[in-house]
């Protein structure tokens, strides 16, 4: 399987990247771990691949502002996985081992996962759950979009053909935060049949202040819901189950495939959601964040 011919360019600045993208026939290449298979299968034939890895500001990553962790477009998943500062966004180390395989994370980028927006991918779900801020540059200038608004459908985002996703900023965890992450896949490293990401925040007295749950692999994109009211129905997994079963009926609308029917995915989702919400709540109350 060989890709159809394409032109290749690796511009030195973001402006040059945008100039190359003008016309809309090019594709941004960072790690290429999602894009290159598409080219190999000839499901896509862009005229030009614009490699963004030589743009200095796109290789930056680290804490930003008071409570943010920012990752620019050319930063590889494995670099983030090993960055001690990324531990401040607990969902990153929780989710990262499930992103493809080690051999893919060595080249794949965090921003590339977001831009590709596969409905079963882990990092877009984490970004949606935390409502990370996505920076996009295009012919009209730079803009910042919340992750939930950024993804508009299966492999479809608000970034147009002349835009480039330049960075994403995840909010770091604070006191009273607890997180949960789980997915079920046929094999380790495969796309999830169903997965959940959640964040629960409690007040000093332990009362649930806010709770957000994102499901992935269950629709044409990651789906996020406010579940603070749901957590009022109980705090143990089995007490939460009736409510998550109801939630699954509403949230899981994928048609299913040979790997799992809609019903099976609903069941997976309901079980994982109850389990991870209960864990996240316990972690939030005990001040342990992730364990």
């Amino acid at each position: 399987m060989k890709a159809a011919p394409f032109a290749y360019v690796r511009p030195p600045t973001l402006d040059d990247v945008l100039a190359e993208l003008a016309g809309g026939d090019g594709k941004v290449l960072a790690g290429g771990q999602s894009l290159v298979p598409v080219l190999a299968m000839r499901l896509g034939r862009p005229a030009t691949l614009i490699d963004v890895t030589a743009v200095p500001e796109l290789t930056e990553h680290g804490p930003t502002g008071r409570s943010g962790y920012r990752v620019a477009a050319a930063v590889r998943q494995r670099v983030v996985e090993r960055d001690p500062a990324a531990q401040d966004v607990p969902l990153i180390p929780m989710a990262m081992p499930f992103v493809g395989h080690r051999e893919l994370r060595s080249r794949g980028t965090v921003c590339g996962s977001l831009a590709h927006a596969d409905p079963a991918a882990e990092l877009p779900a984490v970004a949606c759950c935390l409502d990370a801020q996505v920076e996009v540059s295009g012919p009209g200038g730079a803009r910042t979009v919340s992750a939930q608004e950024f993804v508009t459908g299966a492999m479809t985002t608000t970034a147009g053909p002349e835009d480039v996703l330049t960075a994403v900023t995840f909010p770091t965890a604070g006191p009273g935060d607890g997180f949960g992450f789980a997915e079920i896949a046929r094999r380790h490293g495969d796309f999830a049949l169903a997965g959940v990401v959640c964040r629960v925040h409690v007040t000093g007295s332990g009362a649930v202040d806010s709770a957000v749950l994102t499901g992935f692999g269950i629709s044409d994109r990651a789906v996020t819901r406010d579940v603070a009211a749901l957590l009022a129905t109980g705090e143990r997994e089995e007490d939460l189950r009736p409510a998550t079963i109801e939630l699954a009926a509403e949230m899981v609308d994928t048609g299913g495939d040979t790997h799992g029917s809609t019903g099976y995915r609903r069941r997976l989702f309901a079980v994982l959601a109850a389990r991870e919400l209960a864990r996240a709540l316990r972690r939030a109350r005990e001040g342990r964040t992730t364990t």
Partner: peptide
């Protein structure tokens, strides 16, 4: 200040 990619990768030259 953001840190550069700490992977043992130098910044590739433009092409």
């Amino acid at each position: 200040p953001a840190r550069p990619d700490t992977g043992a990768r130098r910044l590739p030259a433009p092409v």
